[in-house]
């Protein structure tokens, strides 16, 4: 087998050459780029990246910056509400759609179409709908309820919920479609058996169907969660982070410090924190998903 080695390298040569773009992307951009940013987050780079290491200084500054704290709080509020609400609404809608209703395609088309729109378009639509002088508030007041107040985009304590409304409108359709696909995968015999046994519908859902849908739920959560951490365009379009800094989010912090504030080190540190947040979600999921598969 002395000649085995060189042949090994040249076997499948065309396939290897064809896969070069993938290999480069994986190694240079995904691994290399990420590592580079993490390493440079420990430097005091300003306008240009400089390998002048200052330890955890950038992180200390980051966590002492009010704007970052506000961003994190907003992300937590937005994230938890988005996760819980889009999950529940998506599931309920999917369960309703699964009742063999007529016009199912029409309903699905209507509920999913916002997902085809960009966050910029979504943000601008809801900026207009929530405009205090012309939008929903004005319309309700016009109906006679003069003291009606619904102006989230100009109220710094609830502005993030204004963003949430738009985010839910855009993203719930996707969750519904995922869950509906899961529900369709459930054996019809289970429904029949439950009905024969006289189990009420809601109990069948809660105790039989929901546990069976675990994989779909996990996939949905991972998808919603990784979208939440990235939320950027929506805020830029709808509120531009305002009023003041009250609707800032981490992704916007990163962009502003890297490309406008000329403070690269802060941007790197903030983006590394974002990476950490995603890792906290993804690693347990990957462990559950792939770890158990290897064992099974």
């Amino acid at each position: 087998m002395a000649s085995g080695r060189p042949i090994q390298l040249f076997r499948n040569m065309t396939a290897k050459i064809a896969a070069i773009p993938m290999i480069l992307t994986a190694l240079v951009i995904f691994v290399g780029g990420t590592a580079w940013t993490v390493v440079y987050s420990f430097t005091n780079s300003k306008l240009l990246p400089r390998a002048n290491f200052v330890g955890l200084d950038q992180y200390e500054r980051l966590w002492n910056t009010n704007r970052w704290i506000v961003s994190i709080e907003n992300l937590l509020i937005y994230g938890i509400c988005m996760l819980v609400l889009s999950f529940i609404i998506g599931f309920v809608l999917a369960a309703l759609m699964d009742q063999k209703i007529r016009f199912e395609n029409t309903f699905r088309t209507i509920i999913l179409y916002p997902f085809a729109l960009s966050f910029i378009v979504t943000g601008l639509i809801w900026q207009w709908l929530l405009n205090p002088d012309f939008g929903v508030q004005n319309v309700v007041r016009g109906l006679g309820w003069v003291s009606f107040e619904f102006d989230p985009l100009n109220n710094s304590s609830i502005v993030i919920y204004g963003v949430l409304i738009a985010g839910l409108w855009q993203g719930t359709g996707l969750v519904m479609v995922l869950m509906l696909a899961g529900l369709r995968g459930i054996d019809q015999e289970i429904w029949k058996a439950a009905r024969v046994d006289g189990i009420p519908m809601w109990k069948t859902y809660l105790y039989i169907v929901v546990p069976m849908l675990r994989p779909v739920f996990i996939t949905s959560i991972v998808i919603i969660a990784s979208g939440i951490v990235r939320v950027y365009d929506l805020v830029v379009a709808q509120t531009a982070g305002g009023p003041g800094i009250s609707s800032e989010v981490p992704a916007k912090y990163v962009y502003d410090y890297m490309f406008q504030g000329q403070n690269l080190g802060q941007g790197f540190a903030a983006s590394t924190m974002m990476l950490l947040a995603v890792a906290i979600v993804i690693i347990p999921w990957a462990y559950l998903e792939f770890g158990s598969r290897n064992r099974g």
């Binding site: 951009i29 990420t34 940013t37 440079y40 951490v229 890297m258 941007g267 790197f268 990476l275 995603v278």
Partner: peptide, 8 residues
């Protein structure tokens, strides 16, 4: 997150 890879 894309933000991590933007600058590289």
């Amino acid at each position: 997150p894309y933000q991590v890879m933007l600058y590289p």
